[in-house]
C-alpha cells in the first residue's frame, strides 16, 4: 500500500491541515482552523439515542478554546456518549443516532458534507483503557495518525519528539523508540496514546476517563500532562474523580440521568463555582459525595 506516499505531499502537519481544508472548500464547508491554535467546541441541542432509547437530552455546552472542560456525573448519565458525539465516534455503534449540532469554531461537524475522518483528525481522543497498537513500535505508534492520514513529513523525528515531550514520555522512551508499544507500563501506555493523539496536532483533545485504569502515581503524571497540553489544545475530559476535575479543569459540566430518564446537564460553569457554590442542590449533593 504505497499509494499513501505518492499522494498528498506536504511539508508539515500544520500546513497539511490548511491544504486539506482548502481543498474541500469548494464543495463542503471546511473546518476553519488555522492549524496552530486550539478551537472552541460547542454543542447545541444534542440528543442521543441507542435504538429507540433516548440517552441524552438537549445538551448545550461550550468548551472554550485552550481550556480544560470536565464532564462529571454518576455512571450511566451519558457523559461518555456525549464525549463520543463530539468527534463522531458515537455513530460507529450500529443502533446509535443523534440530533443537534456540534460546532467546531462555528462549523457543524455533523454537516452532511463533512467526513467523519476529517472531523476526527481535528478532534482527537484518548480512551479509558490505554490502547497503543501492539504490533507497532513506540515511534510508529506516535506517527500512526500521520501515516493513517497520508501526511508526509521530513520532520518525523521532530514530530515524535515534540509529541512525546508534550505527553511527558520523552525522557523515559527516547532511547528505545523501537520497542513495541505494549512493552510500556500502563501509565506510560496512556501517555503514549496522548502523544499519538497530539502528533496530528488536533484542535481539541477528548479524554474518556483517561486515568481510570491507572495507578495514582501515573494519574498525577497524566493530570500534569493535561495541564501542560491545555496551552495548545482544547481539552474535554470525562472523569469520575471529583478531585481530578477540581485539579485539572477550568470548567465543569454536571450530567445526570435519573430513573431511566435520559441524561442532561444539570449545571455547567467555572469549576470553582460548581464545586464551591453550586446553584442546583443536586450538584451540591453530587460534588460533596452524597450520591453517585
Amino acid at each position: 500500500m504505497t499509494m499513501s506516499d505518492s499522494m498528498a505531499n506536504t511539508e508539515t502537519v500544520a500546513t497539511d491541515r490548511k491544504v486539506a481544508s482548502s481543498a474541500s472548500a469548494g464543495t463542503a464547508p471546511s473546518l476553519r482552523i488555522d492549524g496552530v491554535s486550539a478551537a472552541q467546541l460547542e454543542s447545541v441541542g444534542i440528543h442521543a439515542w441507542f435504538g429507540e432509547r433516548l440517552v441524552l437530552e438537549n445538551v448545550d455546552l461550550v468548551m472554550e478554546r485552550t481550556k480544560v472542560t470536565a464532564l462529571i456525573g454518576p455512571s450511566g448519565c451519558g457523559k461518555s456518549t456525549f464525549l463520543r458525539i463530539l468527534n463522531r465516534m458515537h455513530e460507529i455503534v450500529p443502533s446509535a443516532s443523534l440530533a443537534g449540532r456540534v460546532e467546531l469554531d462555528g462549523d457543524d461537524i455533523y454537516d452532511p458534507n463533512q467526513r467523519a475522518a476529517t472531523v476526527r483528525r481535528h478532534i482527537g481522543m484518548v480512551f479509558q483503557r490505554p490502547n497503543p497498537f501492539p504490533a507497532m513500535s513506540i515511534r510508529d505508534n506516535v506517527l500512526a495518525g500521520l501515516r493513517f492520514n497520508k501526511i508526509r513529513s521530513s520532520h518525523k523525528d521532530e514530530i515524535v519528539e515534540e509529541a512525546l515531550v508534550k505527553a511527558g514520555l520523552w525522557s523515559e522512551v527516547k532511547d528505545r523508540q523501537g520497542a513495541l508499544g505494549g512493552a510500556l507500563s500502563g501509565g506510560q501506555q496512556q501517555r503514549l496514546c496522548i502523544a499519538r493523539a497530539l502528533a496530528v496536532k488536533p484542535a481539541v483533545l477528548l479524554m474518556d476517563e483517561p486515568c481510570s485504569a491507572l495507578d495514582p502515581g501515573s494519574t498525577l503524571r497524566i493530570e500534569q500532562t493535561i495541564q501542560e497540553i491545555a496551552e495548545e489544545v482544547t481539552v474535554v475530559i470525562v472523569t469520575h474523580n471529583m478531585q481530578q476535575a477540581l485539579r485539572v479543569s477550568d470548567k465543569t459540566a454536571f450530567f445526570l440521568a435519573q430513573d431511566g430518564n435520559p441524561g442532561y446537564i444539570v449545571e455547567a460553569g467555572p469549576t470553582k463555582e460548581i464545586f464551591e457554590s453550586p446553584k442546583d442542590p443536586r450538584t451540591a449533593d453530587y460534588v460533596n459525595g452524597r450520591f453517585g
Partner: peptide, 9 residues
C-alpha cells in the same frame, strides 16, 4: 426532536 441523518461519506 428527530434524529439527524448522519452522512457517512
Amino acid at each position: 426532536v428527530t434524529p439527524i441523518k448522519i452522512s457517512s461519506k
